[in-house]
Lab assay of single mutants.
Amino acid sequence: TLATPAVRRLAMENNIKLSEVVGSGKDGRILKEDILNYLEKQTG
Rank of each mutant, 00 (worst) to 15 (best):
K32F: 07
K26T: 11
I30L: 05
G25I: 00
S19D: 12
A6W: 03
G23T: 03
E33Q: 10
A3R: 02
R9I: 07
I35R: 05
A3S: 08
T1Y: 13
Y38M: 14
L10R: 03
D34A: 00
R9C: 03
L2A: 05
P5C: 09
G25C: 04
P5D: 15
R29N: 06
V7T: 04
G28F: 01
Y38E: 13
D34M: 00
L39I: 15
A3L: 04
Q42A: 14
N37I: 06
E40R: 14
P5H: 15
I16T: 03
E33D: 10
G44W: 05
T1P: 04
G23Y: 00
N14D: 10
A3T: 12
M12A: 14
R9S: 07
R29P: 01
E40G: 13
K17N: 13
P5V: 13
L2P: 07
A3V: 12
G28W: 00
I30F: 01
V21M: 11
A3D: 06
L18V: 05
G44R: 14
N14R: 10
D27F: 06
E33T: 10
Y38F: 11
R8S: 11
L31C: 07
L10F: 13
V22H: 15
G28E: 03
A3W: 06
R8C: 08
E40N: 12
G23L: 00
K17A: 09
L36N: 12
V7N: 01
L31N: 10
G25T: 02
A6D: 12
T1E: 06
I35S: 05
D34C: 00
E20D: 15
L31M: 09
G23Q: 02
N15R: 08
L31E: 12
D27E: 10
K26R: 13
Y38G: 08
K26P: 12
V7D: 04
S19A: 13
K26D: 12
M12C: 03
K17P: 14
K17W: 03
K26M: 09
P5Y: 07
L36D: 14
S19M: 06
Q42S: 14
R9D: 07
L39Q: 11
T4Q: 03
T1F: 13
R8H: 10
V7S: 06
G44A: 14
D34N: 09
K17S: 12
I35K: 06
E40T: 12
K32Q: 10
V21R: 01
L2N: 09
I30K: 01
G28I: 00
Q42R: 15
D34G: 01
Y38V: 13
E40I: 07
E33R: 15
K41V: 12
I30V: 13
D27Q: 08
A3P: 04
L10D: 00
Q42V: 11
V7M: 05
